[in-house]
Structures are given as structure tokens and as C-alpha cells.
Design a protein around this nucleic acid. Structure first.
Lengths: 204, 204
DNA sequence: GCCGAAACTGTACTGGTTGCACTTATGGAC
DNA sequence: GTCCATAAGTGCAACCAGTACAGTTTCGGC
């Protein structure tokens, strides 16, 4: 979806600068590692002053996640534009399966993930980022369901759903993780326990 | 529970130093605000070098939360030493009601909370801290239930429970929050929806 | 009494982040 | 077309958190 009116030279240049910075950052980080590259190095490579860099990004970690507003928009859209009659939770489950699980295929995405996973500062930043999305998602859900924007159950639901990335980390089968977590969410801990009890006495 | 053998002068002095630092920090932070006080100021007031300060605390934020291991221990204990036959989730609910809800009474605790809530850096730090506890709690739960330490449902349960402080923030009735969240957890989103549906057509 | 380890010190450094005063480029008003 | 307010960018200096290092003092156990 391209910009509606052709944006002026000014905004194009601004966007270009931002992009140059993000590209320089990612390249350096991937090559040398996040904490062996200084912000000054990045600014140098992008040929801007560090002041300019911080005018575009609020901090060093943000250089890596310059494309995360899309992720939030995707979540909200999954809820708002779900098929007629579909439950909100099921819409989120579908969204998770659609956009989460295939992460493992693209090689460019894989090395990106490796970078994040291998850097504590980035892991934590990513997690906090998701939690910020949780608020927006919670409000969207509440709105869809015709409840108050601060409805407790909706906030809780949003936060629960966004725990995914963290919980799935290091597990072999992301699809199974999604299914398990959503089942737990929908049916509750009680039924989870029942299932476990049944499994623990397979005789009879 | 006091220390079993009288600890030597060395350890007592160490503890005293640590305490002096924490006290100095809290006093300065409460008076001037977290980010208007530098670590050097704290070290100065406690009459130690900054090096020493960082030997006792891993970072500036940690100065504020010097007593949080107890919180984790409390959570684990709530699970491990629960009454015979009580469900793990119910044990956690009871623990939450017991140690969470009365937070609002003590005035010293109130200004502490105000400090944390009013400082983004501290809010985020506190949240991350809880999440670190989540891992330990998840393992403990799994162990109690005779499952693998990395059992997915147990990890999810632990993380869900620890979202409390965040979700309860700014709500008038903490007790109600606890009850609502635990009911949602136990019975699942489906029943939550049913309840909402029933409430939305009170006629008949 | 002695020795090794642990606590502590002072200094100097790295690196993220900000404030400030200043130039330059742009877009809109006239 | 000219002019001006403003946004983007610059360079520099500073602040502050956190760390490395090379000591010195103080215990505690032997």
C-alpha cells in the first residue's frame, strides 16, 4: 500500500535518511554483533551525526526494530477485520498461525532472529515492545466486543496472547505451541488438568 | 527466620554496607526523583565508591528493589507448601489475595509504589523482574504436577499469574481484579464470553 | 601470627544519550 | 518569483551509567 499523495521531497529525504541509518545499523550488527558496534559507528556508516540518529530512533535497540508498527497493525487488523461471526480469540489464533509460524523459513529472517535471540538487551527490548502493543490490542478487542476500553478480561487476553514469542522460544514445533496455548486460553486450566489426569492413567 | 550461626564481622559489615547504600538510594530517590539523582550521588551519600555500589547492586534500578528475592520465594512457597489436595492455581489465588491486596494500606509502601509507578524506567524494570520469577515459578509448578520442567502449560500459567501487578495497576478494587483474572484462567475465555452474553440481555 | 581471600577505594575509560547553538533546505504565503 | 517560518541536519561538549584496573585494608581460618 503506497502513500496516497506523492510525498514532498522533504519527507522523502527524511525517510531515506531513516532507512540509511536502519540499514547501516543492521549490517554492522549482523557482522560484528550488537554490543561490539557503537551508535557512533552506525552514524558514521550512515554518514549522519549521532544527533540525527537519535532524532530518528529513540535508542540503540530501536535501530533493529524499525519495522514493528506493522506488527501491531497486523494484530489489530486480525481482530477488526475477522470473518463474520468468528470469535476474537479464534481470529488471533489464525493470525498467529499465519504470521508467526512461517518465521522459520526465510533465511534473512533467520539470521535476524538469531541476532535478537543472542543479545540479551535485544531480547528484553523485543519483549517490552510486544507488551506495549498489548495495550492497543486490548482496547481493540474491547471495542469489538462492545465493552469498556479498559475491560479487564480484554486486557488480560491481549497480554496473554502476546506472550507467545517468549513462550515459543526454543521449542521445536511452533504450530503445536500455538495450538496448545490457545486451547488452554479458551478452555481454561481446569480442562487442562483433566486432560493431564486422563493421560496419566492410560489403563482403562 | 534468623541466620543459623552468628555471622562473622565481615558478613555483617558487608550487609551493613549494602543496607546503607539501599537506604541512601531510597531516601534520595523519594526526595528528588529517580532520574534526578545519579548513582554517584547515592554512593556519595552512602559514603562508598561507585565501584563498591556496583559490587552490591547490578544496576541503578536494582537499588530500589533490594528485597525482591523474598517475593519470588513467597510465590514458590505458595505452590510447594499448599494445603493437601489444593489445586496449584487455587494456591496461587490465595497467595495473591493474601500478599497482593493489602499493599494499599501501609503509607510507606504507598509512596514507594508512587515512586515506581511514576518512573518509566522503574516500571519496566519491575515488570522484567517479575518475568524472571516466572521461569522459576513455572518450573516449581511443573515439578509439583510431575511434569517436565519446561512443560508449556506450566510456563504459560506462571507468566499469566505474574501479569497481575501490571493488570491491576490503576484499578480501584484489587481483590476483584484477582478474582476475575483467576476465574478467567480456570474456566477459560469461552465461559467468560458466555457470562458476558448473559449479562448483555438481562431481560428474561 | 600468618596468609589468602574478600571488601573496598580512586581513577580513568567506554559508550549511550542529550542540550545547544548553528547551518541548510523546503514548502507555503504573498 | 521572493521571503520567511520551520523542520532536518550538524558538530561539539557535556552528563551519566557501568566497567577495568591496580592497588589497600580487613577478616577469618589455619
Amino acid at each position: 500500500m503506497p502513500d496516497s499523495p506523492p510525498p514532498g521531497r522533504r519527507e522523502r529525504k527524511k525517510a531515506a535518511t531513516r532507512q540509511a541509518i536502519a540499514d547501516a545499523a543492521l549490517e554492522l550488527f549482523l557482522e560484528h554483533g550488537f554490543d561490539r558496534v557503537s551508535v557512533r559507528d552506525v552514524a558514521e556508516k550512515a554518514d549522519v551525526s549521532t544527533t540525527t540518529l537519535f532524532a530518528h530512533f529513540p535508542g540503540k535497540e530501536a535501530l533493529v526494530f524499525d519495522r514493528d508498527e506493522e506488527a501491531e497493525a497486523g494484530l489489530i487488523a486480525a481482530v477488526r477485520e475477522r470473518p463474520e461471526g468468528q470469535d476474537v480469540v479464534e481470529a488471533l489464533r489464525a493470525h498467529a498461525l499465519r504470521s508467526w509460524v512461517p518465521t522459520a523459513s526465510d533465511p534473512r529472517l533467520r539470521q535476524f532472529t538469531a541476532l535478537v535471540d543472542g543479545t540479551p538487551a535485544l531480547r528484553e527490548y523485543a519483549e517490552r515492545m510486544w507488551m506495549r502493543h498489548a495495550d492497543a490490542l486490548g482496547v481493540a478487542i474491547a471495542d469489538e466486543l462492545g465493552r469498556e476500553p479498559d475491560d479487564l478480561a480484554c486486557s488480560a487476553l491481549a497480554r496473554y496472547v502476546l506472550q507467545f514469542p517468549t513462550l515459543a522460544k526454543g521449542r521445536p514445533d511452533p504450530r503445536a505451541v500455538v495450538e496448545t496455548l490457545f486451547d488452554l486460553l479458551v478452555h481454561g486450566w481446569r480442562s487442562q488438568q483433566d486432560a493431564a489426569r486422563a493421560a496419566s492413567r492410560p489403563q482403562h
